[in-house]
Computed example of a mutant assay.
Amino acid sequence: MKDVKMDKLTKAYLDHGMISEEMTFFKKFVEGIDADEVENYLSRLRTFSEEYITNHFRFEEEEIFPMILKYGNEKEKKMVHMLKDDHVTILKKLDKFMKQVASYGAHPTEKEIEEIMISSRALLEMVLIHARKEDAHLFPNL
């Protein structure tokens, strides 16, 4: 019985940690489009997306995926191909988003800021779904 309680506590702790990470990620993402500091928001968005999305994907594709494709089983290899497809989709969405944001200039209107927020949430959700796939199906096997 003690082990069952500990497993539930461990799961709750891990779930809480995942939610906390997601909220931290979201907070950093949204800070990039703070309406009070629109002068620098595009630059901060570029920095954020490069650091937290593009570089992360590059690291996975250069360091982790080749190892799994070489040594993993068929299920793991299939997961890597699916994750690589996610990378392509997310990076295209990110590029479209960045072009949208850039088209609004340094002083977006209230409506444009609202559109940025809606688009950023959609992009963020794609990234978080992708991360959950990795957490659930790929990294436990490593």
Rank of each mutant, 00 (worst) to 15 (best):
E62K: 12
H81T: 13
E114C: 06
V88W: 07
S119H: 09
F29P: 01
E51T: 03
L142T: 08
S20R: 12
E114N: 12
M23Q: 10
K84I: 11
E74C: 05
K27W: 09
A131K: 11
S119Y: 04
E37I: 05
H107I: 11
A136W: 04
E21R: 07
A122S: 07
E74Q: 09
L94K: 13
H87G: 04
E50V: 04
T109K: 10
D86S: 02
V30H: 04
E51F: 01
K92I: 06
I113D: 02
M82V: 13
T89P: 00
A131D: 11
E60R: 01
K92H: 11
E62V: 01
Q100W: 04
S20D: 09
E39H: 15
H107A: 07
S20Q: 09
L123A: 06
S103Q: 04
H137M: 13
E62C: 05
E74W: 00
E63G: 04
E125R: 10
I118D: 13
G105F: 01
H81I: 03
A35F: 00
K70G: 00
F65L: 00
T47N: 13
P108N: 04
K92D: 14
T89D: 09
E63Y: 08
F29D: 00
K93D: 07
H81G: 10
E63W: 08
D135P: 01
E125W: 04
G72M: 02
N40H: 15
G105S: 05
E61T: 03
I68T: 02
I90A: 07
Y52D: 05
D34H: 00
L124N: 02
N141M: 03
S49M: 15
N55T: 13
A102G: 09
G32P: 02
V38A: 14
V30L: 12
I113G: 02
E51A: 07
M79L: 15
E50K: 11
F139C: 08
I129Y: 12
A102C: 08
Q100E: 14
E21G: 01
I118T: 05
I68S: 03
T24V: 10
